[in-house]
């Protein structure tokens, strides 16, 4: 039985493995570097001049940045499902089972590697936004809270992706999750004001988890009144992590013991 110290060592090695794999897989590297740049440029320059931000009165770049930060980190986080599914179906898991390591560190390694990688991806998106003219008025505390929100979102999406990756039987099926995550910000108050959407979509946009997260980030970055969005955002993120982490652990144990 492994001690907390050896388990931490196992986790560290598996995180390093995950990060190394990302550097070596060209597709992943492009997703994590080019995608944030492309999304930011596309929305600011192609759509920015035509989209009205409604009653907020914000410049479009100020309006869209929080959503793009989440899109950049979230899409890569969703690909955790593919990485886990590949390990589960590609025989790698049988190798791990012969090693004296804690079982939970395998999915946890994927999740932690994903958080590191995708928070960096969001940082690239932020750097591009600043180059394009985004001028936040956030204090140091506000920046820390924004970082916490982005990290929390990436962690929640990675944990959810881990559950999905353990549920499905192939890496192709696991890949479907990334499209859901990439699509979710569009049906929120992040890319276009939800008030401009038709009834059903508007109701969904106001009540889905991304809208309060985006509104909280917007408030922190631009010094706007926050209201209840901060508490709702925290509840969504904490709830997702608290539910998904133990579920992933149970699923992993079941999948590996049934072999």
């Amino acid at each position: 039985m492994s001690t907390p110290v050896t388990a931490a060592g196992d986790l560290r090695r598996l995180v390093v493995r995950g990060l190394r794999r990302d550097v070596r897989v060209l597709d992943g590297l492009i997703v994590n570097t080019a995608l944030p740049v492309m999304i930011m440029v596309l929305f600011v320059y192609v759509f920015g001049g035509a989209i009205t931000t409604g009653s907020s009165g914000l410049a479009y770049i100020d309006f869209v940045v929080p959503a793009v930060l989440l899109m950049s980190g979230g899409y890569g986080a969703a690909l955790t499902a593919v990485a886990i599914a590949e390990d589960m179906t590609g025989g790698m898991i049988d190798r791990f089972r012969t090693l004296p390591i804690s079982g939970w560190t395998v999915p946890a390694g994927h999740v932690v590697a994903s958080v590191i990688r995708n928070v960096l991806s969001s940082a690239i998106a932020l750097a591009v936004a600043l180059l394009l003219g985004f001028r936040p008025v956030a204090s140091l505390t506000d920046w820390a809270l924004v970082l916490a929100l982005v990290t929390g979102y990436v962690l929640a999406m990675s944990a959810l992706a881990a559950v999905w990756g353990l549920l499905v039987s192939s890496s192709q099926a696991a890949g479907a999750f990334s499209f859901v995550v990439l699509f979710l910000p569009y049906v929120s108050d992040g890319i276009v004001p939800a008030q401009t959407m038709p009834g059903v979509l508007r109701d969904f946009a106001y009540n889905q988890p991304l809208t309060p997260i985006i509104e909280t980030m917007r408030s922190l970055l631009l010094g706007l009144p926050m209201g209840a969005s901060g508490a709702v955002a925290t509840a969504w993120l904490a709830g997702t992590v608290v539910i998904c982490v133990p579920v992933a652990a149970v699923l992993f144990r079941r999948r590996t013991s049934a072999r």
């Binding site: 409604g54 890319i191 276009v192």
Partner: peptide
């Protein structure tokens, strides 16, 4: 569907 209903209102006033 996506562009008509999600972006239509913000880009042209109505889908």
């Amino acid at each position: 569907l996506m562009f008509t209903y999600l972006f239509g209102g913000a880009l042209a006033g109505s889908p």
